[in-house]
């Protein structure tokens, strides 16, 4: 973790995109209907009301109703549905 913290502080110092060095996912939320996760490491749980995504340093848990994985590539995935919460599980 110390290594990640150092990379994060370096990227902040030089104003570089943190997600490139910290290994953390970049999450974009459009209203309560769509979540896009970049830099993911795969899916850990896939259910209608809950999707867990391996984000490297943390697990990103998306909760809601009628959740569906719309597109997924090696680096990016998009989830649509009625989203009630996005949280990190450590």
């Amino acid at each position: 973790m110390a290594g990640h913290d150092m990379l994060r502080s370096i990227s902040r110092t030089f104003k570089l995109p943190e997600e490139l060095f910290s290994g953390m996912p970049r999450i974009e939320i459009n209203g309560d209907e769509e979540v896009t996760v970049e830099n993911h490491k795969g899916i850990l749980m896939y259910e209608d009301e809950q999707i867990q995504i391996n984000g490297g340093n943390a697990v990103v848990q998306i909760r809601g109703r009628g959740l569906r994985l719309c597109t997924m590539t090696r680096t990016i995935l998009t989830i649509r549905g009625y989203i009630t919460g996005v949280e990190f599980l450590r």
Partner: peptide
């Protein structure tokens, strides 16, 4: 590298 979409459980 298999692309897919409209995933439904």
């Amino acid at each position: 590298e298999i692309e897919f979409w409209n995933v439904e459980r």
